[in-house]
């Protein structure tokens, strides 16, 4: 399996933790892991983006137009990072209630067969106990849809391995909630 993932958000939204989660998943599945993170000045309140490539890759950076999956925890960061997706790629974006997406962008993406899968992961996280689990909610949702090549049991195992003790229960709750809603979204 070769998968290229982009994770985007703003400082504090858990982009780096999500990247660790998928790295660990890669390791568990016996895949090569290659990725890149933002540190230093650009971390101070700005956009945070992580590139992650599982499989046969050498470079840690995803070239534009080649990512399979984009996870974005904030709307503007979604717009900024859409360029990384390949034709037929998947975009899982956090969409807080009341937010909409630009129609022109949406119809253009449709032509490129890029699906925008919006989910209110912030609400799911708050329901699970803390806004800090927004990232995990969105990831759970994606697994629930069955559109991504990751399994429920593998991700919960990896969550157990990587979460801080005090966050584990919260993360698992947010993951399950997202997962269930992801599953439902594909039935309707």
């Amino acid at each position: 399996m070769n998968v290229q993932i982009i994770l985007a958000g703003i400082g504090g939204q858990g982009v780096l933790f999500s990247s660790r989660l998928f790295s660990e998943l890669g390791l568990q599945l016996g895949l090569n892991v290659m990725g890149s993170e933002t540190h230093g000045m650009s971390q101070r309140g700005g956009s945070v983006i992580a590139h992650l490539k599982l499989g046969q890759f050498q470079s840690p950076l995803v070239r534009r137009g080649t990512a399979d999956i984009l996870y974005s925890f904030e709307k503007n960061e979604t717009y900024r990072t859409l360029k990384f997706l390949r034709e037929g790629g998947l975009c899982f974006t956090n969409q807080e209630s009341g937010e909409g997406f630009d129609n022109k962008v949406l119809s253009y993406l449709k032509k490129k067969n890029i699906a925008i899968l919006a989910y209110d992961a912030t609400a799911a996280a708050l329901k699970s106990g803390s806004i800090l689990a927004t990232n995990i909610g969105l990831i759970g949702y994606s697994v629930g849809t069955g559109l991504v090549p990751f399994k429920h049991k593998d991700l919960t195992k990896v969550l157990e391995l990587t979460s801080k003790k005090k966050n584990l229960a919260l993360n698992l709750r947010a993951f399950e909630l997202g997962f269930r809603e992801g599953k439902l979204s594909q039935r309707s």
């Binding site: 703003i10 650009s42 101070r44 309140g45 534009r64 900024r80 962008v105 253009y108």
Partner: peptide
């Protein structure tokens, strides 16, 4: 993808400078 770039540019997204 110049067309996508143009569409995104038109949205005039707020610039997040380091602070």
């Amino acid at each position: 993808d110049a067309k996508l770039d143009k569409l995104i540019e038109n949205l005039e997204l707020p610039v997040r400078r380091p602070t």
